[in-house]
Amino acid sequence: MSVHDFWTPFALEPFINALIIGLSLASIWLVAALGLTIIYGTMGVINMAHGEFIMLGAYSAWVMQFFIGIPWLLCLPLSFFIVGGFGWLVERGLIRHLYDRPLDTLLATWGVSLVLVQSVRLIFGGEPQYIDVPDELSTVMNLGFIHIPWMRIFIFFVSLGLVAMTLAILFKTNMGIQIRAVMQNKEMAASFGINSKRVYGLAFAFGAGLAGISGAMFSGLKTIFPDMGLGYVVEAFLVVVTGGGEVLGSLATAGIMGELFSVFSYFTNDTFGRFVLFVLIVIFLRFRPQGIFTPSMARR
């Protein structure tokens, strides 16, 4: 392969299309990472089952549509509550007993992920499943030289909506002030009447619910299969770690990562683009391990 084959020369129109795809990728990574951000930021729990929560959201949507006939758009909020409820049970039954033991939490959630994948494979089989989305979202928007599927536009705006909702809950509600207090200082929060166990349970359920709604949304973009969570969780973890476990950090990081990947992929290819992106993240974390916005003293 010659250098000429490897390197794509710059051309304005395809480059702008690449930037738009970068935004779309960013929104997918952001929504996949949002629940993980809440769980890690609030509780310091590295939830290895997050990808499988996304998978559960996708299967919830599929089951609701295939067996009950619920329209896909209605499946999205319902998946939030189904996976959120499941997350609440996992927190009550397992995670709650392992706080302050991060390695055990990591192993336990990894165990949950294995159980979920195998359970879904046993119940529904390993073959890919498909979901019907509204016809309007199956077409492509053509705006001059810009071509982008409506589904990606939909995901982009729903992602922004979910971020706005999360920020509103965190900064405009009593539950939000309790969550942020526990994030900063669990002992102090408890010393002022806040039941940190209850806050942890709700935060875990909320994070799981966000994973559920993102999985249901991704089911409209790609096929559904038991291992699908792996395809999202690596980027989700990178977004959370680089973003410092904060919602605004994740928002910025997902945007930067999506655009960098898209630009590198445009000039070279997807594999090399991913390679360069991961190398840049490793270098960034070498010098700012606390994340993009977090002051160094506040590092976990």
């Binding site: 009593n174 002030i177 942020r180 207090a181 900063q184 102090m188 002022f192 009447g193």
Partner: peptide
């Protein structure tokens, strides 16, 4: 002192009201 440095003065005081 145990104040929450990222909170505003208002939010720090309001934190106390959760025990009421």
């Amino acid at each position: 002192r145990g104040i929450l440095p990222k909170f505003s003065v208002r939010e720090n005081i309001l934190l106390g009201t959760f025990a009421r």
